[in-house]
């Protein structure tokens, strides 16, 4: 199912060019509102295909130390769900890069799922990903998400049992986010050897494009993943680049990923 122009088109376009989509994740409001906005622009300019806007949450239990720290700072800066949507509106004034809102469930629940979906679509979001709402956890909420205007991005883990995969994939929209390893978000030295084979196996049952995230921290790793998957998510490594080099540093990191991934395609 497609929901207007956006995520699926971007994947289709990249696929037709023999390239993988590059999907940076940023915690909105980090390191402050101004630099966060500049950073969104910098990564869009540097060749991001889709951007994940991370809504900060006080208890990010699926995240490692880097994103935990960014989240903490963003909350200290007063970032909220409403503030994230405002940042999206500003970004949307100049950029048409598709945006996925990335959140834990509780801030969205308190905002109101229905109200959030419609406000987010109006602000210019294309997709929504909730880390702690796995398939089947809450049929009412999931139905609301599926029927709404945003693509409902599903996650699959290496631990997901084979007989569960079709059920997760069926309810997904836009693309399927494959978690590269058991664990929380964060940079790693090495990706697992089995990754390519696992993605090939998923393709037997999954029609949606497959993006891989968690632990992809160097251009070389991104190129390797681009060789087997349709999309590459970079989060913690990007936050680290932003911390040390500001929005320019973040832009440079995305550009280096872009170059390595595109080279792998030729």
């Amino acid at each position: 199912m497609t929901k207007g122009p956006g995520i699926s088109e971007r994947f289709a376009q990249r696929r037709s060019e023999g390239r993988a989509a590059l999907i940076p994740y940023l915690t909105v409001g980090y390191p402050d509102t101004q630099q966060s906005a500049e950073c969104l622009t910098a990564v869009a300019e540097a060749g991001a295909d889709i951007i994940e806007f991370g809504i900060p949450f006080s208890d990010p239990l699926a995240d490692g130390p880097t994103i935990q720290a960014a989240t903490f700072v963003a909350l200290q800066n007063g970032m909220t769900v409403e503030g994230t949507l405002e940042a999206l509106r500003r970004f949307r004034a100049s950029w048409d890069t598709p945006v996925v809102l990335f959140s834990y469930l509780n801030p969205i629940l308190q905002y109101g799922m229905g109200r959030f979906i419609s406000d987010a679509a109006e602000a210019g979001a294309q997709g929504l990903l909730l880390t702690d709402l796995p398939a089947g956890a809450d049929p009412d909420l999931e139905g609301e998400m599926r029927d709404g205007p945003l693509d409902f991005i599903r996650l699959l883990a290496p631990t997901t049992e084979p007989d569960r995969v079709p059920r997760v994939a069926e309810g997904g929209q836009g693309f399927l986010y494959y978690i590269s390893r058991t664990g929380v978000t964060g940079a790693t030295q090495q990706l697992r050897d089995g990754l390519g084979g696992e993605i090939e196996a998923l393709r037997e049952v999954v029609e949606l494009p497959i993006a891989v995230g968690f632990g992809i921290s160097t251009p070389g790793q991104a190129a390797m993943v681009a060789g087997v998957a349709d999309g590459v998510v970079v989060g913690s490594a990007l936050i680290t680049a932003l911390t040390s080099g500001g929005p320019d540093g973040a832009g440079e990191l995305v550009a280096s990923f872009r170059a390595a991934m595109d080279q792998a395609a030729h």
Binding site: L133, P134, A137, L156, A157, T160
Partner: peptide, 14 residues
């Protein structure tokens, strides 16, 4: 109640 957890934990909870 329920099981509002990352996908990675679903198999372990099962």
């Amino acid at each position: 109640g329920g099981r509002y957890v990352p996908e990675t934990l679903i198999a372990a909870l099962d």
